[in-house]
Amino acid sequence: MWAWPVASPHPVVRPFVGPPNPWSPGHRGIDVGTTEGSVVTAPDDGVVHFAGVVVDRPVLSIAHSGGVLSSFEPVAADVSKGDVVTRGQTVGVLVPGHCSDRPCLHVGARIDGEYVSPLLFLGGIEPSVLLPTRPR
Rank of each mutant, 00 (worst) to 15 (best):
Leu69Ser: 03
Arg57Ser: 09
Val75Cys: 06
Phe72Gly: 00
Ser71Glu: 13
Gly82Arg: 02
Val79Gly: 10
Ser71Ile: 06
Ser80Pro: 00
Leu60Asp: 10
Pro74Gly: 05
Ile62Val: 15
Val54Arg: 12
Ser65Asp: 15
Ser61Leu: 04
Pro58Phe: 11
Asp78Leu: 11
Ile62Cys: 08
Asp83Val: 10
Ser70Cys: 06
Ser61Gly: 05
Phe72Cys: 00
Asp83Glu: 12
Gly82Asp: 02
Gly82Glu: 02
Asp56Gln: 11
Ala76Phe: 05
Ser65Ala: 15
Val75Gly: 04
Lys81Val: 08
Lys81Ser: 06
Leu60Gln: 12
Val68Asp: 06
His64Arg: 03
Val79Asp: 04
Ser71Cys: 06
Leu60Pro: 01
Ser70Ala: 11
Val53Asp: 09
Ile62Lys: 03
Val55Ala: 14
Phe72Asn: 01
Val59His: 13
Gly66Asn: 13
Ala77Asp: 05
Leu60His: 14
Val79Glu: 11
Leu60Arg: 14
Gly66Pro: 13
Val84Gln: 12
Ser70Gln: 07
Asp56Ala: 13
Ser61Gln: 08
Val75Pro: 15
Asp78Arg: 13
Ala77Thr: 07
Ser70Lys: 03
Val84Arg: 12
Ile62Ser: 09
Val79Lys: 13
Pro58Arg: 13
Asp56Tyr: 08
Gly67Thr: 09
Ser65Leu: 09
Ala63Met: 04
Gly66Ile: 00
Pro74Val: 02
Pro74Leu: 02
Gly67Arg: 05
Gly82Trp: 01
Ala76Cys: 00
Glu73Met: 10
Asp83Cys: 09
Gly82His: 02
Val68Cys: 08
Ser80His: 13
Phe72Val: 00
Glu73Cys: 04
Gly67Trp: 02
Glu73Asp: 05
Pro74His: 08
Gly66Met: 02
Ala76Arg: 15
Ser65Arg: 15
Lys81Asn: 01
Val75Tyr: 15
Ser65Glu: 15
Gly66Leu: 02
Val54Gln: 14
Gly67Tyr: 00
Gly67Leu: 05
Ala63Trp: 02
Leu60Gly: 09
Leu60Cys: 12
Pro74Thr: 06
Glu73Thr: 07
Ser65His: 11
Gly66Ala: 12
Asp78Thr: 14
Ala77Val: 03
Leu60Glu: 12
Pro74Arg: 04
His64Leu: 01
Val55Tyr: 07
Gly66His: 06
Ala77Lys: 10
Val53Trp: 12
Asp78Cys: 00
Ser61Asn: 08
Ala76Trp: 08
His64Trp: 03
